[in-house]
Amino acid sequence: MRAVISVVGKDKVGILMNVSTKCAEYNVNIIDVSQTVLRDMFTMIMLVDISNISIKFGDFSEMMTSFGSEIGMEIRAMHEDIFNSMHRI
């Protein structure tokens, strides 16, 4: 099972580290990362494997959102099927 973690907000030092540390903490494996900074706005999309995640994915997703507000970023962790169904036929 895979999920997409998106991180959007004002660019600053250590975003990637912060997010990947959280992933490692819950045994979430990062498969691919793409990030851009456009006019100071940081956008990162992370594809992760959640097959061996140590907590329920719903709880992980909530935790990431509140972690995001702690570090001043908008973070969402969503099951990949939502994007598959919307953008692929």
């Binding site: 691919d32 851009t36 956008t43 999309i45 594809l47 994007f83 953008h87």
Partner: peptide
Amino acid sequence: MFNTNDILETIH
């Protein structure tokens, strides 16, 4: 990998 724009579109 997904297209970044598609993902951002859904989130938006």
